[in-house]
Design a binder for these strands. Structure first.
Length: 414
RNA sequence: GCGGGAGUAGCUCAGUUGGUUAGAGCACCUGGUUGUGGUCCAGGGGGUCGUGGGUUCAAAUCCCAUCUCUCGCCCCA
């Protein structure tokens, strides 16, 4: 353990862990493309304003979790704590509002100043999608289906549960908020200190409190479902119908709320019980008011984000590394020939590892260690006859192959 | 931000009445002669015992602080 440590809550990702991350990321990108999404990369920092306006000043993220700093020119900047605000900002900045719907996929690091835990770093990674300009419930269904596809492609369908709720439109939420606050006020002496604070700032959050006393109060609280107006109710029903058509199992949880201000109508999260307190792996919802709030044209939107670290931890079968071809010159005199042969095989699309130095036995050991499928042995005797020896590392069988047909011969092992 | 647990070689861990050059397994390196790996045998490198103070003749071992990880709260992906 050296004294040189990475910053708290950050980590170096390499080796097996890196492959797991890439697996999650690549799968997400591929599936998103199948749904017609194209990738967008927004800057890792934005004007603080972008997040403050979209997430809500009272949200925990804005009020205490952002990495905010002033640059040398005096601009107030923030490392993105999530990417929906950035993508919507980019959508407005680049005039994408002219071609709707816009379907965008992203992948990259996010930053939140939180107490680190397993599945919760200060720099972490998310993949996500945003669908802008579609107000129809069908859009919600498609976005959720995309998420579900990703999870099942990762082999996680048995390990996650989809919970879903509707927060309704602005009117419904207003109605519910007052009904809920009235109820909670009547029982305020039973609430936890945390929830008393939430009662002032963000009463809906009390619904998913883990405090025992709070839960007892919440158990009898009015449900948002009962406050939904006809339009909102109809919207929810359409979404649920779509999920049923696709055979996507869900649990309607009327107490599911979201921490960020911009959500409306559909809110959902895929959760797991395999990660302790960090149970959400992929979550999102509809945010029809966000674009306008950021100063753009009123544009409906829906999307989700998934935690790459969390998914990577859950995935059990990561595709194995491709087995390379080892090229082993018998002695240093054969190195130039071996180098040329290596390049030839690489240009044919094979993964090749050339043994640089050491005695022949050592190069064979290396070939074994890197799990080579075959070893091309480049020896003096063979070269004199324009052949090399190809050894099958699984069976130990080997045969001489003409240099002219080497590529085809080696390719047959794959 | 609050409360609990942990921190000894690259990895998994031993190491208590505080006392000689701090150990094991795995991994790594070299060798077992002349062009052949996975097994085996022999040898070897590698740790300021998270860091900084303190107590002591003497500290991995006791005390304080601090950093990091971890579990829960909070929050969230």
């Amino acid at each position: 353990m050296s004294g040189l440590q990475p910053v708290r809550g950050t980590r170096d990702i390499f080796g097996d862990e890196s492959r797991r991350h890439r697996h999650v990321e690549n799968l997400a990108r591929d599936i998103a493309e199948r749904y017609g999404y194209s990738e967008i990369a927004t800057p890792v920092f934005e004007f603080t304003e972008v997040f403050a306006r979209s997430l809500g000043e009272t949200s925990d993220i804005v009020s205490k979790e952002m990495y905010t700093f002033e640059d040398r020119g005096g601009a107030r900047l923030t490392l993105r704590p999530e990417n929906t605000a950035g993508v919507v900002r980019a959508f407005i900045s680049n005039g994408l509002t002219q071609q709707l719907p816009a379907k965008l996929f992203y992948s990259g690091p996010m930053f939140r100043y939180e107490r680190p835990q397993k599945g919760r770093q200060r720099q972490f990674h998310q993949v996500g999608v945003e669908l802008l300009g579609a107000a129809e419930p069908l859009a919600d269904v498609e976005v959720i289906a995309l998420g579900a596809d990703l999870l099942s492609a990762l082999g996680l369908e048995e390990r996650v549960v989809l919970e879903l709720n509707s927060l309704g439109d602005a009117e419904s939420r207003q109605t519910y908020r007052s009904v809920l606050v009235e109820y909670l006020q009547s029982r305020r002496n039973e609430l936890s200190p945390d929830s008393l604070l939430r009662l002032e700032r963000n009463p809906l959050r009390i619904l998913d409190s883990k405090d025992k006393d709070d839960q007892a109060v919440v158990a009898n609280a009015p449900l948002i479902t009962d406050s939904l107006n006809a339009a909102s109710r109809g919207f929810l029903e359409e979404v649920l119908k779509g999920l049923e058509v696709l055979g996507i199992a869900y649990r309607h949880n009327p107490r599911l709320v979201r921490g960020l201000d911009y959500y409306c109508h559909t809110a959902f999260e895929f959760t797991t019980d395999a990660l302790g307190a960090q149970n959400a792996v992929l979550a999102g919802g509809r945010y029809d008011g966000l674009a306008e709030q950021l100063g753009g044209p009123s544009t409906p939107g829906i999307g989700w984000a998934a935690g790459v670290e969390r998914l990577a931890m859950l995935v059990s079968d990561v595709p194995p590394l491709p087995r390379p071809v080892a090229v082993a010159p018998v002695s240093d005199e054969q190195t130039p020939a071996a180098l040329a042969i290596s390049q030839q095989l690489r240009r044919a699309g094979l993964a090749v590892d050339l043994g640089y130095a050491g005695k022949f036995a050592k190069r064979m050991k290396r070939a074994n260690k890197i799990n080579a499928r075959v070893t091309v042995i480049v020896g003096e005797d063979e070269l004199a006859r324009d052949v090399v020896t190809v050894r099958d590392m699984d069976t130990g069988e080997q045969k001489e192959v003409a240099l002219s047909s080497l590529t085809d011969d080696v390719a047959r092992f794959y």
